[in-house]
Amino acid sequence: MAYRETEKMRQRKAEARKKIIECTWECVSEGGFRSARITRIAGLAGVATGTIYRHFESREDLFAEIFRLATQREVDKVAEALAVDGSAVERLDNALRQFARRALKGPMKAWALIAEPVDPKVEEERLVYRKAYANLFEQAIRSGITEGCIPDQDARLTSTCLVGAISESLVGPLSPTQTETPPGHDNNEDELVDTIVCFCLRGLTGTRS
């Protein structure tokens, strides 16, 4: 007779998988992907290392799944920020500030998602993540062109430039090796966010406002 998995077994496996994901993200949040060792994850999750590999074919597959889940949350936050009332420029201003402030609030998490050297499978997910942001910005830019508050331009290319500019500008402040006061520990965070957003919108609109 063929083995048939019971509902109780399926539920137990689902709970174990969820726990592994939660503990992996806990490790990443504390020290980046480099600190998320399988033995440590297994210990936190209360499972054997072999159990992890029954749910994920490799360490890369586990990390790619973690990256997908974490970045989708961030993309959703930017989408929410773009859904507020106002002109396209105002909505983009709000979304860019949301992106920067969330990154500075959780610098290690943001570093892991934006710039930490990662395995090829995770890097592939990072490219998907950047494209998702670009797609959201592109829609807003097209709306702004239609509204007349943004000059006519290649919205797809400009959206990619926005993602690159805000991501690259945060690499230094988020880096675990930076020697300056960590973000959020002085009064420079608002100034940093203002500077980044001003640069992005100036490049987008061609104005100083």
Rank of each mutant, 00 (worst) to 15 (best):
P183T: 03
L162Q: 14
T158N: 05
Q139P: 05
F99R: 11
G106T: 03
L136K: 09
R202L: 04
I41S: 10
K121I: 11
L96T: 03
I150E: 06
N94L: 11
E116H: 02
G46L: 00
P182T: 01
V171Q: 00
A45D: 08
R101G: 01
A155F: 09
G32H: 02
R4D: 11
E22T: 11
G106Q: 05
Q139S: 14
N187I: 01
P182E: 00
Q98D: 09
L69R: 10
C161D: 11
R4C: 08
T195P: 05
A100I: 01
F137M: 12
E60V: 09
G144E: 06
V47Q: 03
E147D: 11
E168D: 14
R59H: 06
S167D: 06
R12T: 15
E30C: 13
V193Y: 15
T71F: 09
I20G: 07
S175I: 00
V89A: 05
A36Y: 07
L204V: 08
Q98M: 05
L62T: 09
E168R: 13
F56V: 00
G206F: 09
F137A: 11
F199A: 15
S35C: 07
A134Q: 03
I166Q: 13
S167L: 05
E138C: 08
A81N: 13
A48H: 14
A48C: 12
D194L: 05
R10K: 12
M1R: 07
L157Q: 11
E125T: 02
F63L: 14
C149D: 12
E123I: 01
A103F: 03
E74P: 00
F33G: 02
R97K: 13
D154N: 14
N94Y: 07
F63E: 11
P183Y: 00
G106W: 02
I166A: 12
D119T: 10
T146S: 08
D154C: 12
S87A: 08
S35N: 09
E60W: 07
D93C: 08
D190M: 13
I41G: 10
M108Y: 02
E123M: 14
G106P: 01
I21L: 15
P183L: 01
Q178R: 10
A95M: 06
P173H: 00
Y3N: 11
R40N: 12
N187G: 12
K105I: 01
F56L: 03
K109R: 15
S29G: 06
S35E: 05
M108R: 09
E125M: 05
T179F: 10
G106A: 14
A110K: 04
L136Y: 12
R142G: 05
F137T: 13
E80H: 12
D190A: 14
A155P: 06
G203E: 15
A42D: 07
K8N: 00
G172S: 08
R68M: 14
V89Q: 04
G148L: 08
E15H: 04
E168V: 07
N94G: 01
H55M: 07
Q153A: 14
Y129K: 02
D152H: 13
G148Y: 03
R202A: 08
E123L: 13
T51K: 13
E116K: 11
Q11G: 12
L201W: 04
I141E: 10
R54H: 15
Q98L: 07
G86L: 10
D76N: 02
T195Q: 00
V78D: 10
K131M: 14
